[in-house]
Design a protein around this nucleic acid. Sequence first.
DNA 1: AACGTACGCAACCAAATGGTTGCATTTCAA
DNA 2: TTGAAATGCAACCATTTGGTTGCGTACGTT
Lengths: 106, 106
Amino acid sequence: MSRASSAASLFAALGDETRLQLLHRLSSGGPGSIARLSEKSKVTRQAITKHLEVLADAGLVHSARQGRESIWALDPARLAEAHQALDQISAQWDVALERLRQFVEK
Amino acid sequence: MSRASSAASLFAALGDETRLQLLHRLSSGGPGSIARLSEKSKVTRQAITKHLEVLADAGLVHSARQGRESIWALDPARLAEAHQALDQISAQWDVALERLRQFVEK
DNA sequence: AACGTACGCAACCAAATGGTTGCATTTCAA
DNA sequence: TTGAAATGCAACCATTTGGTTGCGTACGTT
């Protein structure tokens, strides 16, 4: 993760309700086929496929063909990196907020 | 922040390099006019204005007209909320990662 | 062998995005 | 009061995005 340059693309990948739901589904329910991941969704299977590909481009998930279905799962390594990226942004904002707080108190 | 529903729009607002730079600039350099915020950017002043408006829609910044210039600054309250949203996602992923780790070890 | 299931691929579409240019307006300063 | 500075507003443009439908293909199952 080349700090800041790819943070934007990480956020962009997370910037969609359907994709957040997919991530949540994968992180709480474990790996699943496209069909199963599409089950409770309002959009079509192909739409889900596209979203999964976006998440894959961001490195957050990956897939493996198994028979006639392709199983998608979270990618632990990249997810951990993304986790850190989020923490860094949070930390940066902490500093900003602290600065603002002190400014107001003066 | 209506949990999860608006997390996506928060991430969407953060999903652009120029906007992340603006946030970084505002959090490290304090409030500034559009002209000053546009100074080191490659895109035009109007592009910067649009990005600031996107950030404003996400509640992350706000502006106030001062004479002939409009001054933009971080919005502490919403920034803190966003901070928490990020932390929650991180926490969710922590659980997922731990689950994955245990699964692998078996 | 034949049928249903699970996908992949491609074309297509509307709307949103990120950007530009041109011009009008407001405001500060000489 | 006149000119430059700082924005705002609007039109326009290319690309991306999120979604669809239709059809082909591969794989299990019976």
